[in-house]
Simulated scan of single mutants.
Amino acid sequence: MPELPDVEGFRKVLESCAKGRVIRRVDVRDAGVLHGVSARRLRDALEGRRFTEPERHGKWLLAHTGGPTLVLHFGMTGQLVCGHPDDAPEAHDRVLFTVGGDRQLRYRDQRKLQGLWLADDDSDVVRLLDGQGPDAMAVDRAEFEDALSTHRGRVKTVLTDQSVLAGLGNLLADEILWRAGLRPTDRASDLTEAERRRLYAHMRRTLRSAVTAGCVPPRDSWLTGHRDDPDPTCPRCGDSLRRSRVAGRGTVWCPRCQKDGS
């Protein structure tokens, strides 16, 4: 599933491919990815406008035009790619935006679990993002620590709750907790001040590296690089990794490096 680093990568694709360019044509190949807007209304609202500076909040991408804002969520399998109008569409290219005559921005999604919305103005954007917590890249330490201390759920569940903190998914949460030496089943509200600060510091460092990579990279030195191995071992201590489920999510952790919690 695309997480914050992936969506930041899509923001950069949108910026490099389409920023400042006139939207010449909107081709909706599959209206099943549209939410609350018809294909005709999407075309009428966007054709002739220019994409301006895009923004990201958590896993949401905001494609501003100086008027309506195209709002994108990538669900499990969504992507944003830049191509040429003459390139044949791929099977899962759902909506094509021809910009400036020689580039085409493509929303590609196999499973279609989320999709595209159209916000007429800033109040519509606020409404669509209502219930989202602060962005994980922008949240300050005090706000982060306060969110953890006031939630009694397991720390992984809290980290991946988009209403608490926007942008973290399964891979990032496991990686950050492993780096911080905390078990995913620890209660968030039971963490000490030192543990909360350590978790925040590792979240910031992990996100910076992942954003640079454009994904949660499966490096040998990362937990992510070993979680799908047949017999995964911890890249830090060499012990066998454990697999379990936390709030229905497949979870990987190291019983030696991640201390026993509450």
Rank of each mutant, 00 (worst) to 15 (best):
V126P: 00
A166R: 03
A147D: 02
E3C: 07
A201T: 15
V95C: 05
H35M: 10
D93F: 01
L96I: 14
E3Q: 00
A39R: 02
R24E: 15
G181Q: 05
G20L: 06
N170C: 03
V125F: 03
R103Y: 07
H202E: 15
D86R: 13
A88P: 15
R227H: 07
L191H: 07
D229N: 14
R24F: 09
D140V: 11
K156R: 15
D6L: 08
D93G: 08
R208I: 12
L62T: 05
R256S: 15
S16Q: 14
S262K: 11
R179N: 09
A63I: 04
V26P: 00
G133H: 06
L113E: 10
Q110G: 06
G9S: 13
D27K: 12
D122Y: 04
E143G: 12
L34D: 05
V155C: 01
G225F: 08
A194D: 15
T251I: 11
D6Y: 06
R94P: 02
V139K: 07
P54Q: 03
N170S: 05
P218W: 04
V246L: 04
V26Q: 01
G67Q: 08
H35G: 02
R219D: 15
D190R: 13
K156S: 05
F97V: 02
T212E: 15
G181D: 08
A173V: 07
D190N: 13
F10Q: 08
V139H: 07
A63W: 08
G131F: 07
L14P: 01
D186K: 12
S16A: 14
L148T: 08
L148A: 09
L80Y: 00
W253T: 10
H57A: 10
D239M: 11
W60Q: 09
A91Q: 13
D130I: 00
R242W: 13
K19W: 00
V164S: 02
E15F: 10
L118N: 02
D30I: 03
R40G: 11
G169C: 11
G75R: 13
V164Y: 01
L105H: 07
D6F: 10
R243P: 02
G9A: 13
A63H: 00
V33T: 01
V95Q: 03
P184A: 14
G181W: 07
W117D: 03
G32E: 15
R183M: 08
R56P: 01
V216E: 06
L159F: 02
A138N: 08
R236P: 09
N170F: 04
A138V: 13
P54W: 06
L4P: 08
S123Y: 12
F10R: 04
R108V: 11
A180M: 10
P218T: 06
S240I: 00
T77V: 07
D260R: 13
V211Y: 06
